[in-house]
Design a protein around this nucleic acid. Structure first.
Lengths: 290, 290
DNA sequence: CATACTACATGCAAAAATGCATGCATGAGT
DNA sequence: ACTCATGCATGCATTTTTGCATGTAGTATG
């Protein structure tokens, strides 16, 4: 009566995903393999672990017990992998980075290029995403985040302070300049559906015209001349066809941080990347404020 | 960059046993398999884990890091296996019991027989040993131990209080009875090399004649008429050819306990065994005291 | 009622992992 | 110097594991 560690992990995944296919995906194997490993585990333990119902596998109490412990084992594994990364000294292998897509497209691209040129043996993997990835699980080694604080248990470095302002197409900008009292149409972010605070008293007529849940889309809408958007300074400047409009005076916005798990932080690869990143940010500070 | 859990376990075993063959034994595989799994792990991590020296594999820092975490994972696995045992309700499968050899041979045999008759589907595995097995690692499910306390973190039930006395062959017993002042030869246990305390004043001449490190051997020596041995009441009575000699008056000795890990303790199989065991002990109390 | 979809079982061929036999290097014992 | 034991590498045959193709049951959907 004993069980292979790989099979423990398979039970965990099946409990977690509730279908052979889901578990198989998570494990990177075919779902038939999952079915067979489960059967093997059940035989090894002399204990049924799942009920085979017409709509899927349903874990028994024993399976839940296993999953609970396997969860702990997985935590330990992740901690191990992070620490292995942390003691890594060679400048080769993969380095995974995550950052907001707009920051990559409009600011970080040169950093990435410079890094890959300087360290051709490091394969840089970029995850452009808006959701926060879990650095504890090593979904990424480093994350560049826009937030007021670095993560809870993460180690972080403040790269830049930045400011917000209002931007619109050149045409709209001209119109506002010529008649500040005309109605100004705003494009706002879904999560903050009201008019931005701090609109200058010289522009009395404002209304929310569009609400988007995606900043890329808002940028496009502004470029197409649909209205005024509040956005970070660097973005308004970098995006073609947009002009600063003085409706909203520049105001501080969430800082830009680079964060990582303390375990992997000391790795040479990460040091190398941070050094280039920090240098680049220092020389481009002025792009982020008025 | 990731690693199979079975390979983590293999690294652990190789760090622990310091040779392919040792690790292979522990894992129940051929040593070439261990070598290949290690190579695979190194390739997966892109990291050497062992130096190949002429006299064996020597773990690198990374391997030690892995072993350290794998150790934790193993603890979790053991805890899992124990709890799985604990929720077991079927009266089938294996039940592993450990007890001192002399207790099995001279007292427990009927319990074992009765149990296997009542529960023919349970395969009873008996480890007759003097060393303490690790119940945390599930080397055994239940242990019967002679000691003053139950184990530290173990759950225990006191089965019997017992007393010691002095025994010898009939011939010696007769000689002592006819002349209490004649020299009495003692056979003592290596760990307590002096004459036992509490020898009755009526027997003034005593000396240590033999020292053994094994109780079975001492028993044989006493039966062969080499001298007087202090031993538990039940043993002196059960062993053929021995008679109680009044040199040492009966005195309390370490109790007999049945102990187990709290996780596995509730299992139906263990309950069943304990119930037979306890009943048997109750009806045989008198064999253990004067 | 036909249709598509999900979730799984099963048989077979391909791929991977394993065990075994053989050979080499080193160190200990005689 | 010779033998033996330990510890490992390598090539090959076998076994095990895996993936894929096909088939079935239940469940929506129009």
């Amino acid at each position: 009566m004993s069980i292979a560690w790989d099979d423990i992990r398979t039970v965990l995944m099946l409990v977690r995903h509730r279908s052979l296919a889901g578990a198989a995906d998570a494990l990177g194997v075919n779902y038939t393999t999952v079915a067979r490993r489960i059967r093997r585990a059940e035989e090894a333990l002399g204990h049924p672990l799942f009920e085979r119902l017409p709509d899927g596998y349903r874990p028994t109490a024993a399976a839940h017990l296993i999953a609970q412990h396997a969860d702990q084992m997985e935590d330990t594994e992740h901690s191990m992998m992070r620490q292995l990364q942390g003691i890594e000294t060679t400048l080769s292998g993969v380095l995974t980075l995550t950052a907001p897509q707009l920051l990559i497209a409009n600011f970080l691209a040169p950093v990435i290029e410079q890094f890959t040129n300087m360290h051709p043996n490091i394969e840089l993997r970029i995850l452009a995403t808006n959701t926060l990835l879990d650095l504890t699980r090593l979904e990424a080694d480093l994350a560049i985040r826009i937030s007021r604080t670095p993560g809870d248990t993460l180690k972080g470095l403040r790269l830049l302070r930045q400011e917000n302002a209002s931007f619109a197409s050149q045409e709209i900008a001209d119109r506002i300049a010529s008649d500040p009292t005309a109605m100004i149409d705003w494009i706002v972010y879904d999560a903050y559906p009201d008019l931005p605070k701090g609109i200058d008293a010289g522009f009395p007529n404002n209304r929310v015209r569009y609400r988007f849940d995606d900043m890329v889309a808002m940028l496009g809408a502004a470029q197409a001349g649909l209205g005024v958007v509040r956005m970070p300074m660097f973005l308004g400047r970098a995006a073609t066809g947009l002009a600063l409009v003085p409706v909203l005076s520049p105001q501080p916005y969430a800082d830009i941080w680079v964060v990582g798990h303390p375990d992997v932080w000391p790795s040479q690869k990460l040091r190398a990347f941070r050094s280039i990143l920090v240098k680049y940010c220092k020389t481009h500070k002025q792009d982020f404020v008025a």
